[in-house]
Design a protein around this nucleic acid. Sequence first.
DNA 1: TATTGTTATACTCTATAACTATA
DNA 2: TATAGTTATAGAGTATAACAATA
Lengths: 143, 143
Amino acid sequence: MMTDPLIHLPGYVLRRASIATMKRLNDHLGAFDLRATEASLILLIGSRGGLTQSEAGRILGIKRANMAPLTAKLETRGLLARRQISGRSQELSLTPSGEQLLVDVRALIAQHEAETMARVPQELRAFVMPILLALWGQDDSPA
Amino acid sequence: MMTDPLIHLPGYVLRRASIATMKRLNDHLGAFDLRATEASLILLIGSRGGLTQSEAGRILGIKRANMAPLTAKLETRGLLARRQISGRSQELSLTPSGEQLLVDVRALIAQHEAETMARVPQELRAFVMPILLALWGQDDSPA
DNA sequence: TATTGTTATACTCTATAACTATA
DNA sequence: TATAGTTATAGAGTATAACAATA
């Protein structure tokens, strides 16, 4: 067996944990032909209908320039609607078919999050969110 | 202030934490014109001289096809040497200049890991590694 | 002047397929 | 047959720059 000498580095293990978890999530989301990024936008609009495209980008850490093709793709698929609310801003909302998908995505995510938490020994679970939020910090403005 | 409704999802916060931490690391590594992936390979060879290219890939979760350009680039920069040890395997080692860089990279990583840990409240630090290792799991064979 | 949205573009990392050569 | 290395290629995701239009 090949042991990994980098395994004592928290940043490295954090990255490996994130990659492995994302891989599992994307596998699950494949059933809806969705990527994790797309699902996160659908979840966001689902609980914050009427926000602006750039607001959504700021919250999710996605730049303006990358939000454009993302929303365009979901709009083409009939999941998302864009409505001009001022000369330069547009409001995002889910279409009826987007709302329908939202129900399934929420169930899938709940399942995935439960599986993720289940990997952690029960006596450590209470510390997962505080630790991850601390590691996140709040200094990553997507500018 | 825009609160993020996805903030209660551990998988989402894990991803954001990893992205933020990697961004900080890559900023630091920029001083050596290195990416995190390249630094991880240098660290690996530094503590496991003489392993094979495909062994390194298996440990770091990088596929054979992606290891080739990675080692080629570091070899071109004079940091890494490849030596044929059998007809089909090649052993990786650091050149003298690679060994020299290793010292700096190790110091930089130590600094970065300390900063990362410092973000976590002191009373939770003991749980960081057990939790991250559990979230990682061991089911991500790079094929 | 600052913000919003868009396009174009480039880079990193990852993924598969196909090929050669070797064990 | 399975493994090692390589090449080509494609797809995400992210980054900057530049532009038009608007607040």
